[in-house]
Simulated scan of single mutants.
Amino acid sequence: MAHMTTNTTKRIDSLARYHLLGRSGLRVSPLALGTMTFGTEWGWGSPKETAHRLLARYLEAGGNFLDTADGYTGGTSEEFIGDYFAKQGGRDSAVIATKFTINTIPGDPNAGGNGRKNIHRALEASLRRLKTDYVDLYWLHAWDGITPLEEVMQTLTDLVSAGKIRYLGLSDVPAWYFARAQTLAERQGWERVVALQLEYSLLERNIEREHIPAALELGASITPWSPLGSGMLSGKYTREGLTAKGEGRLPAIQGGGNPGLEKLFTERNWRIVDTLLEVSRELDRSPAQVALAWVARRPGVASTIIGATKLEQLEANLHALDVELPPAQAARLEAASRPELVHPYIFFEDTFYSGGMFSGGTSIRAEPTWFRPAAR
């Protein structure tokens, strides 16, 4: 694809059009820099020098939202971020988000999960690595299925009161869990959840059934992770049967038993990739840019997490917000990737409504826009 800005010292206006995160006053860039690739402990990723160049370019372009976790590359990701701001300054201008839940001390049952003891342990360790005394957004990394929700919300509220975190978010939780958290927060006067971090892409749209409607109703933003489907939507892979072939980490890690990766390799998903490639050629844009542009404009989405291991890759992704999706191409992507209609949502199809089942045959009815969101 020929269309790509090569001036890597230029501020990108579309990146600096900040969005409010949920019902809060926190302003974040529409693209967040994911730093799971900071460090080489997992056999892929970026050494410190490269990571710092990526971070510098993102900030220089107008971005301000950094996403990391205590479990990323054994804590190296947080260390790289802390080292950068300790050397370059500017920490207070950045919105730094990190996470807890993942057990980082094998053999210690309280060094993981979402209990109060681990939340405090994890936060103190993250603050040391980040070389800061507060975190702007603290994510619960994943539902542990055990810890009472009241304990989680009270603990995070206390940390806001103590000044150690500014806002709180939930990642990879059931929609009912978020809804209960937000409702309890309203009732008890606890800190509200400002954002949900969930997988969302042309290949993974299941959150449109319940999570996005809940977020829109209850005042939280969506912060998608893996908007490129673990790289499958990047355009750099071809299919071999149902598996991926090409230069990159996806072929190397497929077949490893990770359910989040193994679900990718289906005939349906390869058909979505084919449609994406057709649309990207018509628009003279890279498949990655088109896929990111699609996600970033979905209802409820405030900031989409992008990652990169090379500067040119980051630069191309940062310009995804400049991509305009004409109605015809947007409709083709929508049709190719639309989630299966399952119970009970099958009852909410327009044909069922138009039959007057709930309206007594009258023409007055509420449009169920929450069920199948249209692109903005």
Rank of each mutant, 00 (worst) to 15 (best):
E247A: 15
L325C: 11
S286D: 12
R332P: 08
P339T: 02
E340P: 00
K245C: 12
T309N: 04
E262T: 14
T351L: 01
E151D: 12
G113A: 13
A86Y: 00
W176M: 03
A288K: 03
E191Q: 15
S24Q: 04
I222R: 08
L325Y: 10
L333Y: 13
T68D: 03
L159M: 15
S221K: 00
L314Q: 07
P30G: 09
L21W: 06
V290F: 04
K117A: 14
K245I: 13
V323K: 06
G256V: 04
H343V: 06
L170C: 08
W42N: 14
G235Y: 08
N258S: 12
T132N: 00
T9M: 02
R285G: 06
S14M: 05
Q289N: 08
S46T: 12
P227C: 12
P224C: 10
R128I: 11
Q254A: 05
S337R: 06
G256W: 11
E312F: 11
G219P: 12
Y72S: 03
S359A: 09
T8E: 10
L159V: 00
I253V: 15
G361L: 10
T275E: 15
P327M: 04
A366S: 14
Q88D: 04
R129W: 05
Y18W: 08
P259L: 09
T76F: 00
T101R: 14
D70R: 15
G356R: 06
R268C: 07
T132L: 05
G169V: 07
L250A: 08
T155K: 06
I105V: 15
S201Q: 13
P148G: 05
P109Y: 05
F371D: 09
K263I: 10
E186N: 09
V295R: 08
G260S: 06
